[in-house]
Amino acid sequence: MDLKTTYLGLKLRNPLIASASPLSGTVNNLRRMEDAGIGAIVIYSLFEEQITKELQEMNQHLVRGTESYAESLTYFPEPADVLVEPEEYVDHIRQAKSTVDVPVIASLNGHSEGGWVRYAKLLEDAGADALELNIYFLATDFATTSEQIEQRYLNILRSVKSMVKIPVAVKIGPYFSALAHMTKRLEEAGADGLVLFNRFYQPDIDIENLSVIPNVLLSTPQALRLPLRWIAILHGHLKMSLAATSGVHSAQDALKMIMVGADATMLCSVLLKHGIDHVDVILEDMRQWMQEHGYESIQQMKGSLSQKSCPNPEAFERANYMRALKTFI
């Protein structure tokens, strides 16, 4: 059975990629992922906030209360070493590369145009095979237009692309008025791949303490539908790679994504829930299903049920919405 695929120009032994999560934080886990058969690993994200906000906060803490009273002109020793969070991340990428043979994809997560994107270069120098640029942005400002927002995505991408030679995938959310057009623009701006979709963190509220609770829920298999539809629509219209993320919990889910046109599928919640070794279970299930259904390779099935290739393309569009509802009722 040939599970090989190509993602961002990288040859993967299979289409399963560990997506950015805390699991990739230790070298031991990376080794376990590889042993379990993973095709590639996206290392946990380096957040813009880590590069900017945390350093600013730390700087504020270091100067708070200083130069006010003659006996305590400072409260901390001058840091002997450079206080830069990404050093640790960059080191981790380096270690990851020396630990595993599967491709290692670094992940940069941010939302504004600024100096933080220069870390792309450091990640490339550390040996990352590719970069996942996770643009994590909630458009809450009433004065900002859709065009300005789209422009910001493109600007961030362009500045990252201008710094590195390795392929860059962009991970975006689904909340664009004209998503298809946007993906085209991203491709034109140099994206080598798209990762669909980012799951924005959704806070909860506490009605006892009248406060907002920031926490993250793991994805459920239901989350699969959104990327499934969009990958189906986009497949065949873009030259860049497509990766599916959100809601991929089983071999069937992964196969569905490939059939609608994904070059790779990402796993996160399922590994957090069942453990890293579950990769092996999914892979085995994939092989078995493909065998049972007479498929020879991933390549063969890729895009077979995309909007372009499927027997009923209108099912992916709005027209189908009314029918679906009626059926449900």
Binding site: I51, T52, L55, Q56, M58, N59, L62, P79, D81, V82, L83, V84, G114, G115, W116, R118
Partner: peptide, 12 residues
């Protein structure tokens, strides 16, 4: 002075 504390602080 600020390099130790990060490029962002420098830029700011």
């Amino acid at each position: 002075f600020y390099t130790k504390k990060g490029e962002e602080i420098v830029q700011m």
